[in-house]
Design a protein around this nucleic acid. Structure first.
Lengths: 147, 147
DNA sequence: ATAGTCAGTCCATAAGTTAAACCCACTTAA
DNA sequence: TTAAGTGGGTTTAACTTATGGACTGACTAT
C-alpha cells in the first residue's frame, strides 16, 4: 500500500497521519510551536539533513499548515509560520507532550513544560467533551460513523 | 543525527516521537484503539509489509505500549493489547482525529467519529487545563522548564 | 489428503535519508 | 576590493529502511 492512499481514508486519524506521520514532520512542527521560524533554526535544532528539511517544509506549506513570509529580498528568504490550520495542532502537541512526560521514562526535573497563561499554572492538559465538559476517558469512547 | 538521540531529550514531545514518530507506529496504534488485536488484522487493515509489522509490534511491546496475550498454544499466537501506557495515548488519538476531521479536507459524511458513552453525544474533544478547567488555546501556552 | 489459518523468515529490489561538496546572491569586516 | 559570512538551494553517492513475493512451520477444518 502506498502511504498517500490514506489521504482519502474515512478515518480522520489516518488522514492526519498521511500528512504528519513521517519521521520528521511532527518534530519540525514542535519547533514551530517553540518559536523556530527559519530554515537554519530547524536545521540546527533537529540535525535534519537539508534535503529532507526542504522537502518537509515545502510539504507543510503545500498542505497549508505553514505559511511563508518573506523577511528579506535579494535573495528572498522566508520565515515559516504556523497558519490557523497549523496552530490547531497545538492540542495534539500538548497531549503528545503529556504522554511523553508521564509515560516515557526520563529525568522529569529537566523537562520542558508548558505554562497556562490565563491561570498561571504549569499546564497539565486533559481531553474534555464539548457536549458535557467532562474529562474523556479511553473506556468511554466508541468509534462510530458520523450521523 | 540519529533518531534514537531524541529518546533522552529534555522535551517530552521529542521523547514521545522517538517512540511513535515513524511511518507506521501511530497507524498500528489507531487500529488497536479500533479493536484490532492480531497480526493478520493489522496486515489486512493497513497493507503494511509483514517484516515491518513484525518490527513495529516488537518495538511497541518492548516499549511497554502493547502487551502480548497468548490466545492459543501449538503454535503460540498472541493478541496484541494496549497496556495502560498504550491506553494513555487515547487523548493523542482523539486530538489527532479531531484535527484530521476539521483541518484536512474530505467527505465529512462518511467519516469515522467517536461517541462519548457517558453523555451520549458524538464526541468533539478539546484540551482543558487541569488547574483551571478552561479550554487551552494555543495563544495561552508558553514553553518553560519544570520547576 | 488438501486446503486454509496465522504467523515468522528470507531475499532482491525499491524508496527514503544522509553527509559532503558545491553553487548562489547577497552583506559585512578588513 | 578582497575575503569571509549568511541563509539558503542543488547534486551526488553512500547508506539505511521498506517493500512484495516466496517459502516455512505448526497446526485446524473439510
Amino acid at each position: 500500500m502506498r502511504w498517500s492512499d490514506f489521504e482519502s481514508a474515512d478515518c480522520p486519524i489516518a488522514r492526519a497521519l498521511s500528512i504528519l506521520g513521517d519521521r520528521w514532520t511532527l518534530m519540525i512542527l514542535r519547533d514551530c510551536f517553540f518559536g523556530v521560524q527559519r530554515f537554519d533554526g530547524f536545521q540546527a535544532n533537529l540535525g535534519i539533513s537539508r534535503t529532507i528539511l526542504r522537502d518537509r517544509l515545502a510539504h507543510l506549506v503545500n498542505a497549508g499548515i505553514l505559511v511563508q513570509r518573506p523577511y528579506q529580498d535579494r535573495p528572498v528568504r522566508y520565515d515559516y509560520l504556523l497558519s490557523a490550520k497549523g496552530k490547531a495542532l497545538n492540542s495534539v502537541m500538548l497531549m503528545l507532550g503529556e504522554w511523553g512526560r508521564t509515560a516515557v521514562d526520563g529525568q522529569p526535573e529537566t523537562q520542558v513544560r508548558h505554562r497556562h497563561q490565563t491561570c498561571g499554572h504549569v499546564l497539565t492538559p486533559y481531553v474534555a467533551c464539548a457536549a458535557c465538559g467532562e474529562e474523556v476517558l479511553a473506556k468511554d469512547v466508541r468509534a462510530t460513523r458520523a450521523a
